[in-house]
Computed example of a mutant assay.
Amino acid sequence: MAPKDDASLNRKEQILDAAASLFAESGYYKTTTADVARAVGVTQPYVFHFFKSKESLYLAVLDRAYRRILHAFAAVDAPPKHLQETMGKAFVELLVDHRDEILLVMMSYTTSEAAVRDYTRREFETIFERVKARFEQAGLEDAEDKASSFIGHGLLIAMSETLNLPHICRWREKDPEKYGVSAKPAKPST
């Protein structure tokens, strides 16, 4: 690949990173392509060089995040009895490493744009089918129910993170040092 191509791909990734941050912070409707351009230090027409509209930019951010999720779940190598837990840890690692993108994916169903909702529906269906297939291949009983609960738990994690209500879903407490959670003081004895 030519250096110019590398620079162009790098700039596109920078645009996606900035867009993910801005969409996560301000939402789809309040974020503009001009905001994204300003955050990256490029012109708005340069953003349109890669993405024909704000909606296509948003969908590209979601697509990159969905691919991350599918890859993370596919890469999990664990014995059947630890598969769900290990896949859950893979999701948490994604949330820690790519917080904005993963929260956008998990909350994208709230965007009322038809193309976004259709895309979100298809991708969640794909994730569900892949998770269910992994559970079936592992020989887990009730794979469909387990896949449904697994995805539901991911949505609960995303909601608790988005609303800053960590007590709704205490995933961080499972490894406080890693996720920067201070230990709770011991309750006084009575």
Results as ranks from 00 to 15, higher is better:
Gln137Val: 01
Glu101Val: 05
Pro80Cys: 07
Phe124Gln: 06
Ala39Gln: 08
Thr190Phe: 12
Glu55Lys: 15
Thr33Val: 15
Gly152Arg: 05
Asn10Leu: 12
Arg134Phe: 00
Leu22Arg: 01
Arg122Glu: 13
Leu22Trp: 01
Gly154Trp: 04
Phe51Cys: 09
Ile168Lys: 05
Ala114Met: 13
Val131Ala: 12
Lys184Arg: 15
Ala78Ile: 05
Ser112Glu: 12
Leu83Tyr: 09
Ser21Arg: 15
Tyr58Ser: 03
Asp35Phe: 02
Ser8Val: 09
Arg11Glu: 13
Ser8Cys: 09
Lys89Phe: 00
Met159Asn: 08
Ser56Met: 10
Glu85Ser: 13
Arg68Pro: 00
Ser21Asn: 14
Ser148Met: 12
Glu161Asp: 04
Ala24Tyr: 03
Thr86Glu: 15
Arg117Thr: 12
His153Thr: 15
Ala7Leu: 10
Leu70Asp: 12
Asp35Ala: 08
Arg134Asn: 06
Asp175Ile: 09
Ala186Cys: 05
Val105Thr: 12
Leu140Asp: 05
Phe128Thr: 10
Leu95Asp: 02
Leu156Met: 12
Leu57Met: 05
Arg170Met: 10
Tyr109Asp: 14
Pro45Val: 08
Leu16Gln: 07
Ala78Lys: 06
Leu94Asp: 11
Ser56Thr: 15
Tyr29Thr: 11
Lys178Gln: 08
Glu136His: 00
Thr33Arg: 10
Trp171His: 11
Phe135Gln: 02
Pro176Gln: 09
His98Val: 02
Thr110Lys: 11
Gly180Phe: 05
Val116Trp: 06
Glu161Val: 03
Leu95His: 04
Val36Gly: 02
Asn164Phe: 01
Asp175Pro: 00
Ala60Glu: 08
Glu25Tyr: 01
Glu141Ile: 00
Phe135Ser: 03
